[in-house]
């Protein structure tokens, strides 16, 4: 019985995860990236405790008696904008929006991309050709026009931004995962499972997915910054949710209201740096995960 509980209770899983963590810990870039992400994650989580979103209304900001265009020295910690709102409050809240959009959009990308990639790669044949033609069709449409068109049809909301980013970026993921599935499918252990009478579901769950999961995880991590940047772009173009200030939205408003010409650097620098830091951190973690998932990569680098 002791043996069964040992093998069934996921002891091996723990040891696999353990070895993964051991390898991760050895990477300096991965650990620095992770520390930054944890810090921003905490900031995003506690944002509602620090900031009351009501103050983003210009009316509330005015009743609070805030000064307009105040530099950080006059209104610590980060000054105010043209509507007398605290830039710090926007920065804190923006981290929440940017991370949410980045993660959620990536999740949408991953779910669609993995489903299409696994089905196309595993089933092959006509279904594969069909799915890949659709994928290519999405790939050749330029991102911005499609995203703008979709966003204007769906309306301006955070949820729609997530959908727009997810719907336009899954084809990359689908192709990547499909190629990996094609490789894993050739492995002898898939043949063995088939000879044991396994159906497709079992093979995909037990053999295909576990062997592409490292790649999926690494790419998901690398995809979050791209999603955050896409969100920034869309918000900057005025397609974001006006009541829910993301970093991209802050940049857009700063730009639109002449923060650059007024030299009101405190308005746009925090959001810009925030985007840069988070994107960099995700990339560092993602690269590290990628190297662990595919050891060949590490040597070539």
């Amino acid at each position: 019985m002791t043996v069964r509980s040992m093998t069934r209770s996921g002891a091996p899983g723990v040891s696999a995860a353990g070895s993964f963590w051991r390898q991760f810990r050895r990477s300096r870039q991965g650990m620095i990236g992770l520390a930054i992400l944890v810090a921003f994650g905490i900031l995003a989580l506690v944002a509602p405790l620090i900031v009351d979103p009501a103050q983003f209304s210009p009316v509330v900001a005015r009743t609070l008696g805030n000064p307009q265009w105040a530099p950080p020295s006059e209104f610590p910690p980060l000054g105010t904008d043209h509507l007398r709102r605290s830039v710090w409050a926007q920065f804190v809240w923006g981290s929440r929006v940017s991370l949410t959009v980045g993660l959620a959009a990536t999740a949408v990308t991953m779910v669609i991309g993995t489903a299409v990639g696994v089905i196309a790669g595993y089933r092959g044949g006509r279904l594969d050709s069909f799915l890949m033609r659709i994928t290519e069709w999405f790939l050749v449409i330029p991102f911005l026009p499609l995203a703008i068109a979709l966003a204007s049809v769906l309306g301006r909301s955070t949820r729609n931004i997530i959908l727009v980013i997810g719907l336009t970026s899954w084809p990359w993921m689908a192709r990547l995962i499909r190629s990996q599935v094609l490789t894993v499918k050739q492995r002898l252990f898939v043949d063995r499972a088939r000879s044991l009478g396994a159906k497709s579901g079992h093979i995909i769950r037990n053999h295909i997915l576990p062997n592409v999961s490292g790649l999926i995880l690494a790419n998901a991590t690398l995809w979050v910054p791209i999603s955050i940047l896409s969100e920034t772009t869309l918000s900057f173009l005025g397609l974001g949710n006006p009541g829910n200030p993301s970093w991209g939205k802050t940049l857009e408003e700063a730009f639109a209201n002449g923060a650059m010409t007024r030299n009101a650097w405190w308005y746009f620098v925090p959001a810009g740096l925030g985007i840069l830091t988070v994107v960099l951190a995700f990339t560092m973690v993602g690269r590290t995960l990628e190297e662990i998932a595919d050891p060949k990569l590490g040597k070539e680098r």
């Binding site: 002898l188 252990f189 037990n206 053999h207």
Partner: peptide
């Protein structure tokens, strides 16, 4: 070597059938 899924334990491999 190729017939055994590297991510499964020996127990899981033998029990798979």
């Amino acid at each position: 070597t190729g017939a055994l899924n590297p991510r499964h334990t020996i127990y899981e491999i033998v029990a798979e059938g």
